[in-house]
Simulated scan of single mutants.
Amino acid sequence: MGFKDEQGFDFSTGSKSGAPGHLGHRERLRDRFSQGGADAMPDYELLELVLFRAVARQDTKPIAKALIAKFGTFGDVLAAPAARLKEVKGVGDKIAFELKLVQAAAVRMARNTVMSKPALTSWSALIEYCTAAMAYDDREQFRLLFLDRKNVLIADEMQQRGTVDHTPVYPREVIKRALELSASAIILVHNHPSGDPTPSQTDIDMTRQIVDAAAKLTITVHDHIIIGRSGHTSFKALKLI
């Protein structure tokens, strides 16, 4: 084994150690992605590909594996706050920015597939969007989806963002906003940062209050969806609405 300086320059070979193998590894990953797509790659390798843009002359595998080890999945990494991402060795502002940019792009793409479309006939896409936007958030957020008379999604708004296990929701504000938008129906959505989408008694009570208030003004509450990392729960499916 040759002697290397702090930058990895190997005096026995006259080059930075691992450079040829590193470049070859990048090309192999790109080829695998081009041929088989993301399904052909584990999470850490897909993350490596993302990191290539932020890290030009460094092996990104150790960083990618460290991020997966700390946060769990590819989605968890993208959703992690920038400050927490930078707790991982080798992750600075540039990498954190790149990861948050990819997350924003994924959420925007998912949102564009559901806006201005009938929500009840695009249910799978709606759930995918809500999952992308909310499942990995470390704080609860309460989102309102407003629909017109044809159940076309006309607005998507986050009404409140709370703590790790609580978001204050005010039925009067929900109904007020629906009236402002001339919405005929709404879908309630919130996330459980714990990952478990099982509704709490507080969730059930709050939903009943909103349903009762909306009914008085002939506004329909189609559903209340709870998003978690392990899946989602529909109040309508549970016959709670």
Rank of each mutant, 00 (worst) to 15 (best):
I63M: 14
K61M: 07
K70Q: 15
L153E: 06
R111Y: 10
I225A: 08
R177W: 02
V221W: 01
A183C: 12
S230P: 08
A119M: 00
D165R: 06
K176P: 00
Q7S: 03
R111K: 10
P168S: 04
P199D: 07
E45Q: 15
A56K: 14
K94N: 02
L99D: 05
G18W: 01
A69S: 10
D43A: 13
L144Y: 00
H232S: 14
R26W: 11
V174I: 12
D205V: 14
G36L: 04
F142T: 01
S194K: 12
M109R: 10
F235S: 03
M158V: 15
Q160F: 04
K61Y: 03
Q141W: 01
Q58M: 11
G231P: 12
I63S: 03
Q201R: 11
V91A: 01
G2T: 00
D203E: 08
D212S: 15
C130V: 11
H25W: 09
K216F: 12
K4M: 00
M158Y: 02
K216S: 15
Y129N: 10
L67F: 03
Y44Q: 13
L78H: 09
F11N: 01
D31L: 15
T13V: 10
E173T: 05
A83F: 03
L51V: 10
A79P: 00
F11C: 04
K4H: 01
D196C: 09
S15F: 00
